[in-house]
Write a protein that binds this DNA or RNA. Sequence first.
DNA 1: AAGTTACTTTACACTATGTCAAGTCCCAGT
DNA 2: ACTGGGACTTGACATAGTGTAAAGTAACTT
Lengths: 178, 178
Amino acid sequence: MTRLRANQGAGLTMAEVAAQAGVSRQAVYLHFADRTALLMALVHHVDEARGLAAKLSAIARAPSARAAVAAMVALQASDNPGLWPVAQIFDSLRQSDASVDAVWQNRLTHWRDTCHAVAERFQEEGALAPHLSLDPAADLLSTLTSPRLWEELVIGRGWSAERYRSHVTYLAVGALTH
Amino acid sequence: MTRLRANQGAGLTMAEVAAQAGVSRQAVYLHFADRTALLMALVHHVDEARGLAAKLSAIARAPSARAAVAAMVALQASDNPGLWPVAQIFDSLRQSDASVDAVWQNRLTHWRDTCHAVAERFQEEGALAPHLSLDPAADLLSTLTSPRLWEELVIGRGWSAERYRSHVTYLAVGALTH
DNA sequence: AAGTTACTTTACACTATGTCAAGTCCCAGT
DNA sequence: ACTGGGACTTGACATAGTGTAAAGTAACTT
């Protein structure tokens, strides 16, 4: 199978995908049951290509809770520029396609679990803000480190990766510790 | 013209809109040039119906910067449940329709201006965090009070309006002052 | 009575998704 | 060398949604 390239993210049609892959429109349906299956395969592929699993385990092995947050934000800052076009398509398809939504939710859940583990480390270090319990802390952390917040600041407001990294790290650490 | 009702937000088709309005599909095109125009009118209508302008001026008249932030977060908490279905449609159409995007950007800009004014009040009160200048502060505030962040916590994580209100107010004030 | 307005029904063109069927090309196994 | 299967092709078709066009109707206005 020929390698796929993500287009600008807007109107990704099956015909376009086929053309980009240098193949007939029908050939695409020989590999993927439908558009949804294609998108799911794309996300899976992108994750593998970026070694997401390794990066997540690096977060788990960070020397401190603060360092873990810094690593999480840094991961967003480095990966989102390439991931964002795909995420765009997903986020819009999610509403009309239950299986896309399922994949999306699965990814979110995974990220939230990582956040929960980090919140636990704050608690173990006695640094968790007194007004926060674990679940709300994990929710806040996952929201502050979400691709959407990255998008709003970097794409929407033109922040540099470095400005995003430093401000959001500071913000997230502050949110969990004060 | 018969009153429109927003549907579940997913596949809002012109035929559905017409049916809900008790009118033929073609009649819709007598009032709105196309789907985009209909959506833009819908947003405008919803804004008016909710008295958005009045609420924004109330934020401007808040007794302190902190109170203004509290009012902004409270506005999100109270209005978003009704606004969200419309926002959903907009957010997904934005990618494929430049004029929807224009309306969307316009709204964002307006909100950002409000945030900028609040950031200035923090500065006047001498409460703005030393590492923040006005623009980044306004960007952070607008991001933390965005419908998306509300959605992630309230819709995505099941937070109550009250939990959202108190945590996010605390978070936003903290982000701007420490 | 005549015209305007707000619709109606019917029909069409266009685009995208997904299905179906028949045929081509090439490569591997026997 | 023959045969079968895999990967692809072209072409046709059904379906759903958007948007345009045309002709007709019913009610309200002047």
